[in-house]
Design a protein around this nucleic acid. Structure first.
Length: 946
DNA sequence: GAGTTTGAAACT
DNA sequence: CAGTTTCAAACTC
């Protein structure tokens, strides 16, 4: 967030120097600049307008767009000089914004046009070239036509700039969106220049804008119980647009910085950019992109709709993304700034682009840690803060939340799909895939309609469908306010209907809380999805379209509300969002036995034989912690749980583990409490639970492959793990220094863990693969020592992680659990025994890594869900609770060993989380995934910071 | 599809 | 901490 001062300064400078005579008195402009809000705009304008000379031209050129909003255009045009522009932006901005909002409410199209005009003016980055070009373009009201010209123009202008992408995109938008772009073009040149020189600048202005704009929307948000009012929806859309734009810009800037993509024109640019960002993604992503592009050309309007959706998704994601991480506010601001630029079509492109960016970021960041991920220097960002995923993720979740939320949905959603699709893989892919999948999903959903959504979701991976959605257009109208809603309700009006009517439909679909895809759906009617009653909320995921909830606030639009609520709940019960199901090592895949419901059930009549029982629902056995009567849980009865370990010989260990695990969880919770909000990061750190899980995973993994028959638990490993774990956990607590704590804790944990691991490792002798992990994910990894396989698996996962970390640049997939991140950091600090040996091997592992990462992460979050779907059931089915541990089914092994996916599955085991199931592909999943990713990224970031 | 049952979550 | 209420999912018809 740039301080207003900077903006002011800029504005001042610009006004003084650039705007000589502005029509408006300099004083006036200056004053305007002084106001924080104005400054932003001013700065923004300054950027855009500096060159400005051309403004008159702009005015001169009658734009088709003007048809829509002549007045608006006029207003926009007026600010020819920088000062004027500033004033216009600043002063006018608010009014405009308000007006825009009003119009948005009344007419989305009008809003778009206005926005476009504003954006053009504001951004007005376009250069003279564009201006010249305008004539043709201008004439070309059609977005399509305009697009091409725009592209040209954009090409001309932006190429030079690293940041050109943004500008170009912007221009394109303008052009495509409205011819108006020409008006602003002249100024735009300066703006572009400014941008070049001052990229940060853009962000600032945007941010500032946000403040002004953002406030309104938020304010409204709360209002909503109904929330769904059309106005709100429009507002939301508007916001989203802004966000999207902002993201695009910000992302572009960042991306540009990183990628320095030249400004390809129009959509192509976007695509290119996307590709650039998503280079890692690979062919798949490209294909997706290609599809998108193709589609886009077809119907702009449709595209626009799609884009919006994307944007909407992005919106959420943006938050998640590293850049977004910077702050929601910033994002909003950005969005606001963007608003002007964004137009329906252009938005689409942008959105897609933004989405791509987001995805790319996600990929980079998420899979990589979003924050880091990104090119954006901003990576630092904050701790994400909120993460809805918490449940699944537990520790990580918190961190992820904030940033991820928005992303979550998309990411999870996508991520799930990705997972499904194939788990495709490469860590990189996932992100890209996600983005793509998201877009696709969005499109599909739109096209398919609410009912079909589920299916679409499932298919998402395929992606091909994307373009189809005619609905998308409708969507635009909606506004992306709520993802759900947006999707659900094509029209705002419809929206309410959807709310009310949809539930039934949804219900039908959803009758089961889970979609076919495995995504969760809720049907909340009174809680607004802001209580733990809501599975989505409890899982730390945003509600998905498929949800039939009414008055849902668990959407990206209400991130603040969601976060607040979350925090409130966590304040009461730090573990409220912690995974409900904890797994212990071995069982992971094979037998759920190890997994247990943390709180235990309280069944009185269901005998733990129905889904009323959370234990049963999670496919885990009841434990001593359960207060159930007449427990007949097929997965393990109350008293049997302990025995499992005994039976295996690990019983003691397992018990210990459990206890330790619980303790850890508690510890984590306490930490959370302590650090709470700030600690999203800490959550990451809180690895305790996760680490635990990881350790379990490790054990499990090895088991499956290596020890199919008997699980020879290496008690030592377990013990060591436990000890290390405890130490780590405890130590953190001890340190309990808020922000630092996390790092410290992680370090300690890693250190302790690594230490122990090392010992174990040494004992084992499999150091290579293993060591990295140990270092990275100290505690958890340690467990793995059991078998070489285990070590291998761990190593693979860890290695990948480590490699990723080391490589850092990579998106990484899954950055793994907190522990990993912390570990990584640790490694860095204290080279682990086998320091990066893995790096080399990482690639091969990446797939695994990804999975592992997910797996590990899963421990924390989403992956779990995903895994859960697969694993839990399997494990449950496979074995009886007690015996489960004894022998994991080969099939499991195969699964696990065969593919990374298997690993993931195993990962799931660890953390079932509240939702045993399966991770909803839908937004929820996405969110989770995002959270995971975010967590991962956070961890990585932390490690880096360290 | 409507209604009932169930147990978790929330509240007192 | 226990008891009650509320809630939404799971289940039944």
């Amino acid at each position: 967030m740039d301080s207003p001062e900077i903006r002011k300064i800029k504005a001042n400078t610009t006004s003084s120097s650039d705007s000589p005579p502005v029509q408006d008195s300099p004083v006036f402009s200056y004053i305007n600049n002084l106001s924080p809000i104005q400054p932003v705009k001013a700065s923004h304008l300054a950027q855009g307008f500096p060159v400005l000379n051309s403004p008159p031209l702009v005015f001169t050129s009658p734009r088709i767009n003007s048809h829509r909003d002549t007045s608006f255009l006029k207003s926009a045009e007026k600010p020819k000089t920088q000062d004027e522009a500033k004033k216009f932006l600043d002063g006018p901005v608010d009014p405009k914004i308000t007006q825009l909002h009003m119009r948005l409410i009344t007419d989305s199209q009008d809003c778009e046009t206005k926005i476009r005009a504003e954006s053009q003016q504001c951004s007005s980055s376009e250069g003279v070239d564009e201006y010249l070009a305008d004539p043709s373009e201008v004439d070309c009201v059609d977005s399509t036509q305009s697009a091409s010209p725009c592209l040209k123009q954009s090409n001309n202008v932006p190429e030079t700039f690293t940041g050109s992408k943004e500008t170009t995109l912007y221009d394109n938008k303008h052009n495509t969106g409205t011819d108006l772009g020409t008006e602003a073009k002249a100024p735009s040149e300066q703006a572009t220049e400014d941008l070049e020189g001052k990229q940060p600048f853009d962000a600032k202005p945007v941010k500032i804008i946000e403040q002004s704009d953002g406030e309104l929307p938020y304010d409204e948000c709360p209002n909503i119980e109904s929330g769904l009012s059309v106005d709100n929806a429009y507002k939301r859309e508007y916001r989203q647009h802004l966000h999207d734009q902002l993201q695009d810009r910000g992302g572009k800037h960042q991306d540009d910085c990183d990628h320095t993509p030249q400004s390809p024109p129009g959509r192509l640019q976007i695509v290119q950019v996307y590709e650039n960002s998503a280079e890692n993604v690979g062919a798949i992503s490209k294909g997706m992109i290609g599809n998108m592009i193709l589609h886009a050309p077809k119907a702009r309007s449709e595209q626009g709709g799609i884009h919006r959706r994307c944007l909407q998704f992005e919106e959420a994601p943006p938050c998640a993304t590293g850049k977004r991480d910077c702050s929601l506010s910033s994002i909003q601001e950005v969005n606001n700034s963007e608003l002007p630029s964004g137009t329906g079509e252009s938005k689409l492109v942008k959105l897609s682009y933004a989405d791509l960016k987001a995805t790319s970021k996600r990929q980079m960041g998420t899979s990589l840690p979003p924050r880091y991920g990104g090119n954006s220097p901003s990576t630092v960002p904050k701790p994400s803060g909120i993460g809805l995923h918490l449940n699944s993720i537990v520790n990580a979740a918190p961190l992820v939340r904030g940033t991820t939320r928005s992303i979550k949905l998309a990411d999870h959603y996508i991520g799930v799909q990705v997972m499904k699709s194939a788990s495709v893989m490469s860590s990189h892919l996932p992100d890209n895939v996600r983005s793509h999948s998201i877009l696709l999903n969005m499109v599909e959903k739109d096209s398919a309609g609410p009912e079909d959504r589920d299916e679409s979701e499932t298919s998402i991976a395929a992606s091909s469908a994307v373009p189809q959605s005619p609905h998308t257009v409708v969507f635009e109208g909606h506004g992306p306010t709520h993802e759900k809603r947006g999707f659900d309700a094509e029209n705002v009006d419809d929206y309410e209907e959807c709310k009310q009517s949809s539930p039934k439909k949804k219900r039908k679909k959803t009758s089961s809380s889970k979609d076919t895809d495995g995504t969760k759906r809720c049907n909340c009617k009174k809680t607004k999805c802001l209580k733990l009653y809501c599975d989505c909320f409890a899982a730390g995921v945003y509600c998905a379209e498929s949800c039939a909830c009414q008055g849902c606030f668990n959407i990206t639009d209400y991130e603040d509300t969601v976060l607040e609520t979350r925090q409130h709940i966590e304040s009461r019960n730090p573990l409220a969002f912690a995974p409900k199901i904890v797994q212990h090592e071995e069982e992971i895949q094979f037998t759920p036995s190890s997994a247990r419901h943390k709180r235990g059930c309280n069944c009185k009549k269901s005998m733990c034989l129905k889904k009323y029982c959370e234990c049963y629902q999670a496919n885990v056995g009841c434990s001593s912690g359960c207060r159930c009567d007449g427990c007949k849980n097929v997965y393990g009865r109350k008293g049997e749980y302990i025995p499992i370990e005994h039976g295996v010989g690990k019983d003691n260990v397992s018990d210990r583990i459990e206890s330790t695990f619980d303790e850890k969880l508690e510890m984590v919770a306490t930490k959370k409490d302590i650090l709470s909000a700030e600690l999203y990061d800490s959550h990451n750190l809180t690895p305790l639970a996760p680490s635990f899980q990881c350790s379990d995973h490790a054990n499990n993994v090895p088991k499956s492959p290596c020890l199919p028959t008997s699980y020879l638990p290496s008690p030592e490993s377990d013990l060591t793990i436990i000890s290390s774990y405890e130490k780590s956990t405890r130590s953190p607590l001890r340190h309990s220094e808020s922000s630092d704590i996390l790092l410290e804790t992680s370090k300690e944990l890693s250190d302790l863990g690594s230490y122990n691991w090392r010992v174990d490792y040494d004992n084992i002798g499999i150091v290579d693969t293993f060591s990295p992990r140990c270092d990275a994910a100290p505690t958890t990894c340690h467990i793995t020592p059991m078998s070489d396989l285990c070590s291998m698996a761990m190593a693979s996962s860890t290695s990948s992680k480590t490699s990723d970390w080391t490589n850092a640049s990579q998106v990484q997939l899954c950055p793994g659990s907190h522990g990993l991140s912390s570990d990584s950091s640790l490694h860095r600090r204290s080279s682990p025994v086998t320091p990066m040996t893995r790096l080399g091997g990482t690639k091969s592992f990446q797939g695994l890594d990804f999975e592992n990462g997910l797996y590990d992460i899963l421990q924390d979050d989403t992956p779990e869900i995903l895994k859960d779907t697969s694993t839990p059931i399997r494990s449950l089915k496979v074995s009886s609770p007690n015996k489960k541990r004894v022998s994991p089914p080969h099939s499991h092994n195969h699964e696990l060993g065969a593919s990374s996916s298997g690993a993931l599955k195993s990962g799931r085991k660890f953390i079932l989380k509240a939702v045993p199931s399966f991770p909803p592909l839908t937004p929820c999943i996405g969110s989770k995934g995002g959270s995971i990713i975010q967590n991962m990224s956070n961890l990585q970031d932390k490690g880096r910071k360290k």
